[in-house]
Design a protein around this nucleic acid. Sequence first.
DNA 1: TCCGATTATAGTCTACAAGAATATAAGGTA
DNA 2: TACCTTATATTCTTGTAGACTATAATCGGA
Lengths: 321, 321
Amino acid sequence: MDHQGKPTRQLKSGGKRGNNVNADLIAVVVAMNNSVPCVLTIPQANALPSGPFELAHRSLQSGLRGWVEQQTGHPLGYIEQLYTFADRDRIGAEERVISISYLALTQAEDLGAAAKRCWASWYDYFPWEDHRSGAPTAVLEDLRPRLREWAGSADDTAVRLDRQRRAAVAFGFDDRSWNEEFALQRYELLYEAALVEEAVRVGPSAAPTAVPSKSMIADHRRILATAIARLRSKIKYRPVVFELMPPLFTLLQLQQTVEALSGRLINKPNFRRLIEQQELVEKTGETTTETGGRPAQLYRFRHDILDERPVAGTKLPLMRA
Amino acid sequence: MDHQGKPTRQLKSGGKRGNNVNADLIAVVVAMNNSVPCVLTIPQANALPSGPFELAHRSLQSGLRGWVEQQTGHPLGYIEQLYTFADRDRIGAEERVISISYLALTQAEDLGAAAKRCWASWYDYFPWEDHRSGAPTAVLEDLRPRLREWAGSADDTAVRLDRQRRAAVAFGFDDRSWNEEFALQRYELLYEAALVEEAVRVGPSAAPTAVPSKSMIADHRRILATAIARLRSKIKYRPVVFELMPPLFTLLQLQQTVEALSGRLINKPNFRRLIEQQELVEKTGETTTETGGRPAQLYRFRHDILDERPVAGTKLPLMRA
DNA sequence: TCCGATTATAGTCTACAAGAATATAAGGTA
DNA sequence: TACCTTATATTCTTGTAGACTATAATCGGA
C-alpha cells in the first residue's frame, strides 16, 4: 500500500524535494461561427484563457473545466490534453511555471451574446493557413522572399540549404504540396525567422519585418498553432468534428465545418459517401429549407458509435484477422 | 517586454500564487532485443525510471535526458512527450505531484551489458497484447469470463450493456476485429474491472482475481500502456521505427521490429513494397548471410527524408492541388 | 556434388476505396 | 412557368492495399 505514494524517491540524487513549481492550465477553446473556426480569448488582452492549477482541483481536467465554466458560463464538452510546456525563458524567475495546455471543442450556439466578442477567427492569427479559396497568394508571396532572405542570411551553407528546404516543405514552395497539418511547423519556422511579432518582442526593437497577422501574448499563439495542427490531424481519424456541430445539421454544414478547420475544400459527393458509409450519422427525417435550394436532410450524430469505431487510416499492411 | 512574464495573472481569482506543486519526469525508454520490444526499468523495483524536474534543468526534455544518461550511461535519441498526469489520488497529500511522462526510443546495441537485466519485455506486463502467433487464447479465454462477470455485476442494465460493449470492442470479442492501438483502453478496462494487481492494491485485500501478468508500482503500468498505444499508432504515419534500428539492417529485421511493436504479423511482400516505394531506406550494397538462407541486402535509413515526408494516412477526401 | 531447407526478392491478380465528374430531384423566386 | 440554387444519386476511372505465387541465392548435410 505504501509504494503507492512516491515510488521513485530512491532515485533522487539528494533526496531533497524542494523544487516547487507553479502549474498553469491553458485552454484553447474552439467553436464554429458560421463557417469560421474561432478561438476563445479573454477580454483583457489577446490571450488564451488560463489559470493556475490549484490544490482544490480534483484533476487537471476538472480544474480547467472549472474556471472555463466560470468564465464563459457554460460547461465544456470535449477536452483533450495538448502539450506541457516548461522551457520558456523566464529570466531571473525564481519559480518555474509549467503550462499544461488543453484543446476544448464546444458549440457556438450555447454561448451568450456577451461573450461573443471574445471569439476570434483562427485565420486572424494565421492568415497563411486558409487555403479554401486557393492558396492565399498575397500572404504567401509576402512570406516567400522574407523566408528566402532569412535562409540566405545563414553563414553556413548547410544551414542555408536546410532552411530553404524546411521552408519549402512547410509552405509548399517549389511545387511541393500543401499539407494543412504542418501548421505548427509553419509557425515555428516564422518564429525562428523572426517574422512573427512575438519573436522580435524580446529582441532589440520591434522589427518592421513582421508579417501582418494578429499576435498573442507570451507563447499563446504557439499553443494555438499546436491546437490547430492537432485538430486538423485528428478530424481525419476520430469523429471529433461533431463536438463542434449543433444537434441537428445538414451534410453541407458538416462539410463546411471540416473545410473551415482544415483550411481546404472537399469534394462534395465524396465527402457525403465517406460520411454515410462510415455510419457516423443518421437521418432524422426532418429537412430544412434555410439552405437556399432544395431542402436538405437534417442529420444527427450517432453517439452510440463513439468508442466503437476502430481507428481508421492504417498505413502499414497489417494482416487481417 | 513585460507581458512576456505572467500574462494571465488578471484572471486569477484571488491573485494569490501559492499553489506550489512538485513535478516528476517519467520515462518510457524502449529498445528492441532480438525481436522483443523492451522497456527500461530501474533495478530497485518494478518501476519506470523517473526523477524530479529541477530548477537547474533547462527544459523538460533536457531534464529527462540528463538523468536518463546518468542512469544508463548513454544519451537518448528520440524523445516525445506522452502525457501529463496529476489526478492521482494521494490521500492527505499536502503537496500535489504532477508527472510528465515521455516516450524515448533507443537502440539496444549501445547499452552496456550491465544495464541489460533492467530491460523487460512489454509482453510480460501485457501478455494479452501479443498477437504475433495468433490471438493468445490462453490469456484471452481467461480474461473473457472475468470481464463478462464484471459487466454482469453492475446494477444498472445500461451500465451492464455498456461494459459488455466496451469489453467486446477493446478485446475484439464477438467477431470484432482486434485493434492493436487500443492497448490503453484495454488496460483501463482491466483496471476498472479490478483485473490487474494495482487496481486492487488500494482495495481491502489483494484480490485473487488478478490476471497473471507483471505489474508495476503506482500508475507506471498505465504509462507504459500509454506509450505502447502511442507507438503503435505512430509507426503507421511517421518513420519512428528507425530510431530502434541499428544503422544497417535487413528488410526482414525491420519488418520483425514493426511486428514486435504492433504485436501482429505483416505480409512480407506487401511490407517490402510499401517500404521501398516510400523511399525511406536505401541499399548499402552490402549483404549479410547471418539470416540463414539467401544473403539479405543491408539497408540504411535515409535521414535526409526525416522532416520532408508529409504525413501519410489521409482519411478525408481532401482535394488535390 | 547434388539436394533440399531456408530465406530473399520479384511479379501477378483481385478487391476495394478515393477522386472526379455527371445526372437528377426538389425547393425557392422573378 | 422558367430559372436559379442546392441536395441527392450514380457512374467511371484510377490507385493501392492485401493475398498469393514464382524465382533466386545461399547454407548444410547426404
